[in-house]
């Protein structure tokens, strides 16, 4: 399935051809520690077990701010 990902940290949007199914799988694939981000779809917070769908647009929001 195709997923569009907006990454808040570097403000980039990428498209990914992804063959697994959950948010947890996606973060593992992107090598992102789930402790450091929140994931949303259509402004709705997704927990790690949530299933992804073809053509989803996902936002990855950084938990770490400031310095």
């Amino acid at each position: 399935m195709n997923i569009t990902i907006f990454n808040e940290k570097d403000r980039t949007t990428t498209t990914l051809d992804f063959d697994k199914s959950t948010v947890e799988d996606l973060l593992t694939h992107l090598n992102i520690n789930s402790e450091t981000v929140l994931v949303t779809r259509n402004n709705e917070i997704l927990t790690e077990d949530e299933l992804l769908n073809n053509d989803d647009t996902i936002e990855i929001l950084s938990v770490v701010s400031g310095g």
């Binding site: 929001l61 950084s62 310095g67």
Partner: peptide, 10 residues
């Protein structure tokens, strides 16, 4: 409303 820019030095 919060700007989530990370500090460039952090």
């Amino acid at each position: 409303k919060i700007d989530y820019t990370e500090c460039p030095y952090s």
